[in-house]
Design a protein around this nucleic acid. Structure first.
Length: 273
DNA sequence: CTTCGTTCCTGGAAGC
DNA sequence: TGCTTCCAGGAACGAA
């Protein structure tokens, strides 16, 4: 599942293949993926535009064009953007084809078709989830001083709290479990029950876990691939995610599984208090 | 206001 | 073996 480190890896691997290239054709095969404007307008407005910059915010990719418009893409669970030569066979589950000026094709592929794409020009559309994103991990805005007062009043489970994109931009189910494991905090604890020391440890854990995910080029558990169709390596270093029943890497006792906020959760009952 | 459950979708695994 | 059922999960949405 693409979370912040995976989306960052897609950004890095996509950018050299598409930056400075002109979009010469757009073929939308599943119009409902385009949330704004209509699929026809989306294709029409993008055709002839040059991609000037490939950015990211939270789990959103932001492709800037020379007209000032921005193509904003959320991969959700199984979406992927892959740049490859036009003489290569098209990838499976191809839903949108962006033909670029130099014989490169950028494919949007998606198995479960939850992905969303927007073309925003001069703020003509308000993407709720994008506009309300909280601070980025590893940024100067993400600090214990920011997190503490937000958590203070909250009775939500700390895992649900850190999964909330308006609190922190970019954490998903895998990294949320990893952060809480590293910080030694039980995922079911109420956010407001964390001490200042625990908030501090959690902030550090989020930064450590995300930095490690980026360094390892993302976590490939099922479907995630980067902008060149390659897998990541971070799955080899996970502390808890996907390891239910296996020994805790800290105390050796079997890891527990539970549902927290409707999400599958793995943690150590003994090391995470 | 906050918090929680449901929904979208497909493929793969588990169960009978 | 082959069918059915369940589960994976990001985030919008509606309900409590």
């Amino acid at each position: 599942m693409p979370e912040m480190p995976e989306v960052e890896q897609v950004r890095k691997t996509l950018a050299p293949h598409i930056t400075g290239k002109k979009i010469t054709a757009v073929e939308v095969r599943l119009p409902r993926l385009i949330k704004f404007p209509s699929a026809e307008e989306f294709a029409g407005r993008l055709t002839g535009r040059t991609i000037t910059e490939v950015g990211r915010r939270g789990k959103y990719l932001v492709l800037h064009t020379d007209s000032g418009s921005r193509l904003i893409v959320h991969l959700r669970m199984t979406g992927a953007l892959i740049a490859q030569s036009s003489d290569k066979p098209e990838p499976p589950y191809a839903k949108i084809k962006f033909t670029l000026s130099d014989g490169v094709i950028m494919w949007f592929t998606d198995i479960r078709t939850f992905g969303t794409l927007y073309l925003v020009t001069d703020g003509d559309y308000y993407i709720e989830g994008y506009e309300t994103l909280g601070p980025e991990p590893l940024s100067g805005d993400f600090t214990p001083a920011y997190l503490q007062p937000l958590a203070a009043g909250s009775r939500r489970a700390i895992k649900s709290f850190i999964l909330d994109q308006t609190v922190i931009a970019g954490l998903g189910n895998i990294y949320a479990d990893e952060c809480l494991a590293l910080a030694g905090i039980n995922p079911m604890r109420a956010a407001g029950s964390l001490s200042a020391e625990e908030i501090d440890a959690l902030c550090r854990a989020v930064n450590t876990v995300i930095a490690q995910g980026i360094k390892n080029r993302g976590t490939t558990f099922r479907d995630y691939k980067d902008g060149e169709g390659k897998s990541g390596e971070n799955q080899k270093y996970l502390l808890v995610y996907g390891r239910g029943g296996k020994p805790c890497k800290s105390c050796g006792r079997p890891l527990a599984t539970a549902k927290v906020g409707g999400r599958g959760t793995t943690y150590c009952e003994f090391c995470q208090k």
